[in-house]
Design a binder for these strands. Structure first.
Lengths: 418, 418
DNA sequence: AGAGTTCGTACAGCGCCTAAACATACTCGC
DNA sequence: GCGAGTATGTTTAGGCGCTGTACGAACTCT
């Protein structure tokens, strides 16, 4: 029952190459079998063997262990499809493991429990401007919510395998410290450690910290129903414009964690001055501030989901000024997206944050600009779609992160029962 | 003695997850040991064991095989540094394996032999505009040069483990076919296959095809003396401006091979129209055409290395117009580099192609723009440097590609002696 | 010269995968 | 209804690679 940070899909610091032994072979093949069962639906042992390339014997022993671990269940004999002995179908047990996610943001805290199937089994939110409050107060409150989530998971019979925490700032993954959160006004907060110390119940699982934009992108990758696409960019819109870049199934956070600053791409060199000092940054001509101002919306909060509600109302009734404002933002966004596509040839762009509800109005001008500016657009069509997870992408990503570790090493940790 | 394409560092098509067995353990650990010897200099078996985490016994048997394979050699007993029996140092045998590289470009063909240490042991070039010539004629000539290179390697006692071919166009890695080379006017040429058929001697090793920009970036990564940086962008300047993006030691070619089009990033929306249809593309305000025109250089070829010679002469004598032209290009380039750094937080940018010799004049304005436009520039300084391999980056990358396969699987292929 | 230390190798043991054989369960055809 | 045929799942022997321990070798220090 480990309590420290675990290795896994969310990399820590620099990974030194390690030696391999038979245990790693088992690990790898167990993950292969579980992944096969998880993705290719209910399957018999023999089919899993054929699909993975392993022997039936090997699959047999691995499946036994996975069943013992509670991650896989037999579904009784399937209706026989042809001649020969029919196989017993194996299926992923969605309640075989769960993760707890916590998102701390400027406008509130959200906690959630997500099971192996990626469905949210528990969700609690506490809204309110956190900018004035101390880290201690906020984290105490957040720890309470995690306590509740852990208890809820227990009641649902879900074994909690880890707790993921999403924070809006620069995170030191190795030390698990939030180095800088400009919007919260926090510096060097050991979030994971302090959460644990404030907890009423003791959490029998690791607590892992990461940046919210990164976790949102991972959430989309893991549970967003991405289909076969493992290269995409999640463009998150709010006052700022951020991007989470996933290439070939791997999140790229940049060599120092400063990546994803799509908002400060130059779009209009003669445009307004940005807070970063440059001129014509994308976020000045596609960010929430710009859209609301151009649309003439004044009666709205200046950030978060609620900010777009009045705008959406105007768009729905066809307010020309609002439509023009959003379309203009869409064009600017198109320039940024075109740059991304030119550089990385991602085939999918996902619009999140406030861009998600605005998608119907953003889509067409954005695509038009991309087609005009991207050489390969004709051969390689670009899919642009709104985020399916919406506002909860980061919490879901945070909650699912420990579950990725389980999927990558199904037999490694203890398969404790709730 | 396999003749087909091998798996390895240059990925083919989509890789399905494969099962693992003890042979893979051996492979992995052998690569680990060889990598340790290769990077950490001459080392005794015991030190290798300590460094890798393997047992001395395991290291012993692996080293025996590596020595038998000719990749590692014992260097006799080292001067004892302290108490205890001194160890016998092991070192990488640079001549234990070699790769042949071939670059086919619009202005000529280059072939080279590179050994495991990354040094060029043989080089032959044939200049001349290839745009008018048929694929058959060019490939026949190229095959002859590869024949010569293979013979030269044989004379040097170097066992050739593979042949890499760099071409200026879109490559289908799975089928090993050059789909489209606009500048050569070729479409759907099975370069590898045809080279082999034109060869006089039979090449007892795989022939692998890839795009030249990608191979140049890999060449820089593998043999460019990059130190500890495994995240960088190689910006290649000629008439067009391309980029090879390497993040965390992995080259990103994009989901369909259209990546790296830095040249069509929008830099000046009100700038001149580009051949791609958009306005203000980087390559219009930083490409070779622009620089030569602004500098007033007319007596030069319009592409390739020679094109910059007269420009360099003017720069050397302080011609103001030339200096201003290059500085202006540097500023434009800075905008593109700033975009890259904002998005991916790479810590190093390498200037290749015609940008390499112009580096002294490009550097300062480029850095100034980056500092103005990149939020994190103050915390995370950006290293900009010229390519160390220069014009030969692509050939060297092509030649070294099969050697990466050897390093990744030292015992897999036959260790044939020359 | 002997004690202490480190290096390299030999050997038994264990885990994991493979291959082949075997028991099981169902369809098909008569 | 019953045997032949087929596919599933399990069992068993065998091979391979890593680990831990033991042992000989080589060198320094006292």
């Amino acid at each position: 029952m480990s309590t420290g940070p675990t290795p896994g899909s969310v990399p820590r610091a620099t990974e030194r190459p390690r030696p391999t032994d038979q245990a790693d072979v088992r690990r790898h093949n167990a993950a292969l079998v579980l992944g096969c069962v998880s993705e290719a639906g209910p399957l018999s042992r023999a089919r899993v063997a054929a699909h993975t390339g392993l022997t039936r014997a090997t699959v047999g022993t691995i499946v036994d262990e996975l069943i013992a671990g509670g991650l896989v269940s037999e579904q009784g004999t399937r209706a026989p499809a042809g001649v020969g002995r029919p196989g017993t179908d194996l299926a992923l047990r969605p309640d075989g493991a769960a993760g707890v996610g916590l998102e701390i943001n400027v406008d509130g805290i959200v906690a959630a429990v997500v099971d192996l199937g990626g469905t949210v089994r528990h969700r609690a939110a506490r809204s309110g401007d956190l900018r004035g409050r101390t880290a201690a107060a906020v984290l105490r409150s957040a720890a309470r919510m995690v306590d509740d989530a852990v208890a809820a998971a227990y009641d649902l019979g879900l074994p909690v395998r880890g707790i993921g925490v999403a924070v809006p700032g620069l995170v030191d993954l190795g030390e698990q410290v939030l180095r800088l959160a400009p919007n919260l006004g926090w510096t060097d907060v050991a979030v994971a450690e302090r959460l644990r110390s404030y907890a009423v119940t003791s959490w029998p699982c690791p607590v892992v910290l990461d940046n919210e934009a990164n976790l949102a992108a991972l959430g989309e990758l893991w549970t967003g129903g991405h289909g076969s696409t493992d290269s995409f960019v999640l463009v998150n819109g709010d006052v700022g414009v951020g991007a989470g870049v996933v290439l070939e199934g791997r999140l790229h956070r940049g060599s120092r964690g400063f990546g994803g600053e799509l908002g400060h791409l130059t779009v209009a060199p003669d445009g307004p001055e940005c807070r970063c000092g440059a001129r014509g940054c994308l976020e000045q001509v596609a960010g929430l501030d710009f859209i609301l101002r151009q649309a003439g919306v004044r009666d709205a909060p200046r950030t978060g989901e609620d900010a777009v509600a009045p705008l959406l109302a105007r768009l729905a009734r066809g307010d020309e000024r609002a439509v023009a404002a959003v379309r203009q933002a869409g064009e600017s966004l198109g320039v940024g997206v075109a740059a991304l596509v030119n550089l990385f040839d991602v085939d999918t762009v996902i619009l999140g944050g406030v861009f998600a509800p605005l998608f119907p109005w953003l889509d067409e001008p954005l695509q038009a600009v991309v087609h005009r500016r991207v050489l390969s657009a004709a051969w390689a069509p670009l899919t642009v779609r709104p985020s399916r997870l919406g506002r909860d992408a980061a919490v879901i990503g945070a909650a699912y992160a420990p579950l990725r570790d389980v999927l990558a090493d199904p037999l490694g940790a203890d398969a404790s029962v709730a």
